[in-house]
Design a protein around this nucleic acid. Structure first.
Lengths: 183, 183
DNA sequence: AACGTAGGAGAACGCTCGTTCTCGCGTCAA
DNA sequence: TTGACGCGAGAACGAGCGTTCTCCTACGTT
């Protein structure tokens, strides 16, 4: 099997297991069982578990932001695009297997011990915040709106994860609408 | 030594270590070293690590909400009390050793595996949300404000934890002020 | 056909850690 | 005084897991 294919299969298994059960409770042997990639091959592709974790977060980061951007771009109106972010969150929260934000969860699990994971989480959140800021700018709204919108989105992710509900997205969207109207 | 004293010392050590380094990376032996309570005694007081974890979260819950309420009650004006919540968050974020919300972190670490931890997290967040709702009601504001204020607070906690900054509190406070004004 | 090599299955190794056990000492009641 | 008991120190046990190693099979090359 091609190395690239094996790598993707390993990452598919890693993503499903790490996201669904937490990183520390998933062993390399679980990854092997779920992916069909032998331990030998796994360690050729990722010399240590930490690197598999990093690759998982990195690939998920690209996909997550890609999906968000693709959804948002379907909305033409620059103002509407800001609210579309919250619509997408609602869709995401409702997906099977949704268990909160992978980066927030990883930070809770490993942020205190792994600098690399911690900085990957910071980078992801920074990128999401920058994206929100770009939407705010494109809509000609004051830049000071981006921070609060970011906090609403983060609060919604955390709360949806803990309560297993999509409702926080609608609440955050409504609050965002009010904030946008107030200035 | 009195059992009650030993229990408090154990919980003091557990709180410092679990909060600071994460739960799974702290062993019972670390708790013994930090508390001076022997393993034998620890296991008399808490028959398993999970029960020590639960006791840690439970004691911290009472103290955390107590400190918040004490701070908020110093403000006389019912409307001001809502904003005082965010002032207190700012103080908390600035404390030495602040590492985000203990419950959000614990959820990320153990929520997928421990039902008891997961429901303690849900109970804590529910209690905090109820408290916010009571402040909103006491200020004679529409109940629908409580949800968004909660999301702002949660977003601020998560973001302050990840970025090690107090700024999210001020941003959340400002957004809360705007929301309060808008209705 | 012979050989080198990649890769799979799974055993093995070493370490961590939750939990229990052993041993020895001090204390207190009878 | 003696014996039961509580407790601390720390060894021991057993499981889990990251990582490596062994052995064997299959296949491509000459």
């Amino acid at each position: 099997m091609d190395s690239a294919v094996a790598r993707e299969r390993a990452l598919d298994a890693a993503e499903e297991l790490f996201y669904g059960r937490g990183i520390q409770s998933v062993g390399m042997d679980d990854i092997r069982g779920a992916s069909g990639i032998s331990l030998k091959r796994l360690y050729q592709l990722f010399p240590a578990k930490e690197q598999l974790v990093e690759a998982y977060l990195e690939r998920r980061d690209g996909r997550w932001r890609g999906r968000l951007a693709a959804y948002v771009e379907r909305e033409e109106d620059p103002g509407g695009r800001i609210l579309a972010v919250f619509d997408w969150l609602e869709e995401w929260f409702g997906e099977d297997g949704f268990r909160g934000c992978a980066w927030i969860n990883s930070y809770g699990e490993l942020g205190a011990r792994s600098d690399r994971v911690a900085s990957q989480v910071r980078a992801h959140k920074q990128a999401f915040g920058d994206y929100l800021a770009s939407l705010v700018a494109a809509a000609g709204r004051p830049a000071s709106l981006a921070g609060p919108l970011f906090l609403l989105a983060e609060g919604a992710m955390v709360t949806a994860g803990i309560t297993q509900s999509t409702r926080p997205a609608a609440e955050a969207r409504e609050a965002a609408r009010l904030l946008l109207e107030s200035r």
